[in-house]
Design a protein around this nucleic acid. Structure first.
Lengths: 131, 131
DNA sequence: GGGGCGTTTCCATATTTCGGGAAATATCGA
DNA sequence: TCGATATTTCCCGAAATATGGAAACGCCCC
């Protein structure tokens, strides 16, 4: 992820309604939620929510697709992953000692103390025998 | 981390100068950097930077301590970790399937499952995959 | 104590953002 | 075609934010 995208994502998440929306949509994965349902759940007017959804979509954090007369939104988990990578690439890039506790927070597992400075978009090895 | 703290953190990171400042300070860990040096590195006026540093400090992302007549700032890595945890607790909380790729992005190493069910002669994934 | 340096605070202004009301667009059902 | 529902777009005023200049504060050295 590049800096402008990260800025957009942070900006999008820095507003209470938008943050709540994003979290709600993550919890609603993978089905997603129609805009009206989000508005009802968050007690926000639809036009206001629409503007917030537009910001989130512009930041790439959510995506909406029309289903009949409703528009169903769902979180873009890949974008979240990219954002996490962006946040950690600075420290994990050259400092595995700093990276380890960060990974710890995410996984709850002490994580091996060796982060390679590549945190973009490449799943290392979990392909052959994953679940 | 609680929502208001996360909002403050996102708001703090949603401004170009502040994001650059935070990243710079993370790279400068653990020594930190004096305010003047940050301002010079980012080509920002000191009063402007001071305001931004105040926002970052208010969000708990950086901390400054006086050293003689300079004030040396350094990133709060624990806060960053808390922020990562906040971002992932929604999906990781109940959905390990979503959490795994997220942790992956962070460390380059899959969380717990996914890598080696029972083969012990296999080196643990992270072998060599630099793009 | 006086002068100099680093940093912050105060003030003023331009820009952006937020939320509400009303209207417009798109889809469905009859 | 008509009405109803879901969602967005447009426009507005209010509030927050960013930045610059000038001044103030704290600390060091002489």
């Amino acid at each position: 992820m590049e800096t402008p995208h990260a800025l957009a994502a942070f900006g999008a998440l820095s507003q209470p309604t938008r943050l709540a929306t994003f979290r709600l949509l993550i919890q609603a994965l993978p089905a997603g939620l129609p805009a009206g349902e989000i508005a009802a759940a968050l007690a926000v007017r639809q036009n206001t929510l629409s503007a917030h959804l537009a910001v989130l979509a512009e930041a790439g954090l959510v995506r909406g697709e029309r289903q009949g007369r409703t528009i169903r939104y769902h979180a873009e988990i890949d974008r979240l992953r990219a954002l996490l990578g962006f946040l950690t690439q600075d420290c994990c890039g050259g400092r595995p000692d700093l990276c380890a506790p960060l990974a710890d927070a995410l996984t709850g597992v002490p994580a091996r103390p060796a982060c390679e400075p590549n945190t973009e978009t490449e799943p290392p090895c979990r392909s052959s025998n994953a679940t």
